[in-house]
Design a protein around this nucleic acid. Structure first.
Lengths: 360, 360
DNA sequence: CTGTTAGCGCCTTCAT
DNA sequence: ATGAAGGCGCTAACAG
C-alpha cells in the first residue's frame, strides 16, 4: 500500500481511505490511487492485516465432530450446513470448515482457526475440541450436544420425540429393535442380545459390550436421549429394555444399516419392529427386509428420523425436523454475538405417521 | 501475550516460542508460561496476527460459481467438495467457502477472503469473480472452466465424453433430445423446437431463444462442450443438430428435469432418446417416462452423467468420472503452490453402458 | 536457551 | 480533504 501511495503521489492514508471509505476522498485522488494500484497490480487491502486491526475475520467457523469430509458425506450434516451457509451468505460471512480428523491435534486446528464465532455439530461429551472452543472465548453454538457452560446450545427434545415415534413403531411388537448411531467416540459397532458380533467392519470397529446397551452410558447426547426415549416407549407397553435388541452403526449409511438389519431380522430373536435413528439407516433396513421377503408393516414395522426426501416415497414413519432450519438458527445465534450462555434453544419436531407403522 | 510474559516473568519471545516452538524453550519456562496463560485466560496466539507475520492463513478458499448454499444442495458439488475437504484435512488446512450469492458484491467477497489459494467450481466465462481471483495473484485452480491465463485448470474432455455417450443413447433414435445445464449466467430455462415454453419456473427463468440452441453460444464451458459432443454424435448418424430438441434446466434437480422431460416426451415431436447432462436430471426423465407409461430402452433410450450412486440401480448408461477425485486434485494443485499457469490437467472419464440404452 | 529489535499491512486518532 | 504518528498481536532475524 505504501508503494501505491508513493506511485500515486499521495499518502498511505489516502490510499487506505480510497478503499475503505471512498466517499472521504476526492475524485481526483481516488482516480490516481486506482491508476497506480492497477499499474502495480495491487490487489487491494490485505484481508489479514485488516482483520488484525478490526478484530473481525469475516469467518464463521464450523466444526464437525467427526471428520472434515463428513460435512459432505452425510446427508444430515449437509442439510444442516446448507442452513448455516444461507445465513453466512446473508451476512457476507465466509464459512470456514475447521479440518478435524479425529486426532488429538484437532485441538490445535481449532485454536489456530481465524474465525469470529463457532458452530459445532453434535459431538461427544468428552470431546476435547469442545474445551478448546470454549477456551477461545469466542461465541459458540453447539448443535445437538454436549451442553457446556458458556456455549449456546440448540437441539430438539430428542427424548420426547423418540418416545413418540417409539410408541408408533413398537405398537403391537413382540421383538423390538433399535438401529442406533454410535454410542461414544470409540464408534464401536455391532449387535446386542446374543447375535453374532459383526467383524467385517471399517477400522475402529469392535465388539460391543455383552449384555445390552445402557442408554445413560452413551456420551453422544443425541444418541443417549433417543435411546432413553425408545426405552420409555417400550416401557409404556409393559416391556423391559433388556428385551430390545440394539444394533449400533458406526456411520450414518444405508449400507452399514443393511448389514446390521439383516442380523436383527434373522435368527431365533428376529425383530418385528425397528426404530432407526435416521431415515438413512431406516432405508437400509427396508432393503434388508425386502431381500428377506418381509412385508412392511405386516412382517416388520419401521421408523426413521429426519423426514428426508426419501422418507415420503418409502412410506416411512419418521420424526420431522428441519436440519436446515437448525443450521440457520445456529449460525444466526453465533453471529448475533449473543452473549455466551444465552438461553438455549429447543427446536420443533413432529411425528409423521406413514405406512411403515400400523397406527397411521 | 505481553501480559502473559509479564505475569510469567519472562520475555514476550519466550511466550511466543512456548507456543510456536515448544522444543526451543526450557521446561521450566514453558511451565511458567502455561501457568500464567491459564491464570489469565490467555487463549493462545492470535491466529490473525500470526498469519500477518507468517504470510500464511491456513485457509483454502473455495468459490462456488453459483451460490454458497449450492455447495450443500447439489450432489455433484458435494462430492467435489468432499475431495477438496479430504486434501485440506490431510494438510491441516481449513476450507473456507467464499459467500457468493450472484450479486456484483461477490467480487468484494473474493477480494476480502483471507486464504492462501483458491479452488473455483465451474462458472461462466464472463463471471467477474474469475477476474477478481486472478487479480489477487494467489494460486488458483478452476474446475470445469473457464480457462484463464495464470489460473490452473482441471477438467475432463467433456466433448469427447459427450460424443461417446451420445453415440450410445442416440443409436437408432429418430427424435433425439437433450436435457441441458444452464447455457449462461442468466440461467434461462425452457424447451426448444416449438414446444410450449414453460412459465412455471423459479425466478430468473424466462423464454429460450426460438430456433434452437447454439452450443457455441453457451458461456459455461462444460455445457458448451457437452452440447457440441452430443451434436457430433448425432451428426455421425447423418442427423442435423436442428432436429435435436433441447430442454435447459436452471438447476441440477430431478424435479425440474421431470417437468421438462414431460414436455420432451409428449406432443407431435416426442423424443425417443434423451441425453441428460447429469444422472440427477436423467432420474427426473425416468420418473416422467414411468408416469407416461414409456418403457426404457424400448420406448425411450436415456443417458446420464457422473455415475452417481443412483445410476447403477436405475440401469442408467452414463459417463463415469469421479468428482471427488477431481476435487482432491484441484485442492492438491492449489496447495502445492504450483506456479500459476502450470500445465492444465485433463482428468479421466469412461463410458458405462447399462440397460437404459440398447447397445449395452 | 532467552532476550532485543524491527517490522508484517493496515486503520484509528488526532492534527493540518 | 489529507497527512503523521502509533499500535493491533505476533514472530523472523539476530544477538547474548
Amino acid at each position: 500500500m505504501a508503494e501505491v501511495a508513493r506511485a500515486a503521489g499521495v499518502s498511505v492514508m489516502t490510499v487506505s481511505y480510497a478503499y475503505g471509505q471512498p466517499g472521504r476522498v476526492s475524485d481526483e485522488a481516488r482516480a490516481k490511487v486506482r491508476e497506480a494500484a492497477e499499474r502495480l497490480g495491487y490487489p487491494g487491502p490485505h484481508p489479514g492485516a485488516r482483520s488484525l486491526r478490526s478484530g473481525r475475520t469475516g469467518n464463521l467457523g464450523v466444526v464437525l465432530g467427526e471428520h472434515l469430509t463428513y460435512a459432505f458425506d452425510d446427508p444430515q450434516a449437509t442439510r444442516f450446513l446448507s442452513g448455516v451457509a444461507q445465513v453466512c451468505a446473508d451476512h457476507g460471512m465466509a464459512l470456514t470448515l475447521v479440518p478435524v480428523t479425529g486426532s488429538p491435534s484437532d485441538v490445535d486446528r481449532v485454536t489456530e482457526a481465524a474465525v469470529d464465532a463457532f458452530v459445532v455439530w453434535t459431538t461427544a461429551d468428552d470431546d476435547p475440541v469442545i474445551d478448546a472452543i470454549s477456551a477461545t472465548g469466542l461465541p459458540a453454538v453447539v448443535h445437538g450436544g454436549p451442553r457446556r457452560d458458556g456455549l449456546s446450545f440448540v437441539a430438539a427434545d430428542d427424548r420426547a420425540a423418540a418416545t413418540a415415534v417409539g410408541r408408533e413403531v413398537f405398537a403391537g411388537a413382540r421383538r423390538p429393535g433399535v438401529l442406533s448411531f454410535p454410542l461414544d467416540r470409540a464408534r464401536l459397532s455391532g449387535v446386542t442380545s446374543g447375535a453374532p458380533l459383526n467383524d467385517a467392519l471399517p477400522a475402529g470397529s469392535g465388539p460391543l459390550p455383552p449384555g445390552g446397551i445402557d442408554p445413560d452410558a452413551s456420551t453422544f447426547r443425541v444418541t443417549r436421549q433417543r435411546l432413553r426415549g425408545y426405552r420409555d416407549a417400550w416401557a409404556e407397553t409393559g416391556g423391559d429394555w433388556s428385551q430390545v435388541r440394539v444394533a449400533v452403526c458406526s456411520t450414518n449409511s444405508a449400507r452399514e444399516a443393511e448389514t446390521f438389519a439383516a442380523e436383527l431380522l434373522t435368527g431365533p430373536y428376529a425383530c418385528d419392529a425397528i426404530a432407526a435413528m435416521s431415515d438413512e439407516l431406516a432405508l437400509g433396513v427396508l432393503r434388508a427386509a425386502t431381500r428377506l421377503g418381509l412385508t412392511v408393516p405386516g412382517g416388520l414395522t419401521l421408523s426413521g428420523w429426519d423426514d428426508s426426501d426419501a422418507a415420503a416415497p418409502a412410506g416411512l414413519t419418521t420424526v420431522a425436523q428441519s436440519l436446515r432450519d437448525q443450521g440457520a438458527r445456529c449460525a444466526r445465534t453465533a453471529l448475533d454475538h449473543l452473549t455466551p450462555a444465552d438461553r438455549d434453544t429447543e427446536v420443533a419436531w413432529h411425528l409423521i405417521s406413514r405406512t411403515s407403522t400400523r397406527r397411521a
